[in-house]
């Protein structure tokens, strides 16, 4: 019987976007001893991020990849981290996340969520994608669910609460969705699909 530590220690997880979802997914997976995280984001840490994203005031203005790498190392120096400070596109996703077993879709924009899920499902036949859609607002915790859409596509969220209609993102509700994602990823790595 392979232990959880051994199994997760061999795993590689890609995290696409290091905002409210991605920063929380990264922390949860690092604390769970996932072997390697490939993290990617184009953005810098801004003041409006601190209401829900796992950065600190003294990291304002720094690239999110560098800041998150520092935070992850402080939590668990055993996790390997490969960082890419750049904008992910349909062209570079297969290369950047080529080694990943699972990719967490942690973008903000709906069109980018669509792009990476479509790219993984059509171009990366051995990779599972765990996406999130519908997590804005507060309260209504139990509306956020994890659903297996198809063999390689897991979807988290309430499916409807977007920042376009609800206008607010909170640490608590985004955190619930991010931990659904992290939990689904651990489950897939442990038990398969």
């Amino acid at each position: 019987m392979v232990s959880m530590k051994e199994k997760l220690g061999r795993a590689v997880v890609g995290i696409a976007g290091l905002g409210g979802l991605g920063s929380n997914v990264a922390l949860a997976l690092a604390r769970t001893n996932v072997g390697k995280l490939i993290i990617a984001d184009f953005d810098k840490v801004g003041e409006s991020n601190l209401n829900r994203q796992q950065y600190f005031v003294d990291q304002l203005g720094r690239g999110k990849v560098e800041a998150m790498t520092e935070n992850l190392r402080r939590i668990n120096p055993n996790v390997k981290i490969e960082g890419h400070q750049l904008k992910l596109t349909a062209d570079n996703v297969p290369k950047i996340f080529g080694d990943a077993d699972v990719i967490a879709e942690c973008f903000d924009k709906a069109e980018e969520k669509q792009m990476i899920v479509e790219t993984v499902l059509s171009k990366m036949p051995d990779v599972i994608v765990v996406s999130a859609s519908g997590l804005a607002g507060y309260g209504n915790s139990n509306a956020i669910q994890t659903r297996q859409v198809s063999k390689r596509f897991i979807l988290v969220g309430d499916g409807k609460s977007g920042i376009d209609s609800v206008k607010i993102l909170t640490a608590a509700r985004v955190g619930i969705a991010a931990c659904h994602q992290a939990n689904a990823i651990i489950e897939v790595l442990m038990d398969g699909v």
């Binding site: 991605g22 709906a110 899920v117 804005a136 376009d164 609800v166 993102l169 985004v174």
Partner: peptide, 10 residues
């Protein structure tokens, strides 16, 4: 047919 319509926020 599965249709997933994404909404923004993350």
């Amino acid at each position: 047919i599965e249709l997933v319509r994404f909404v923004p926020g993350g």
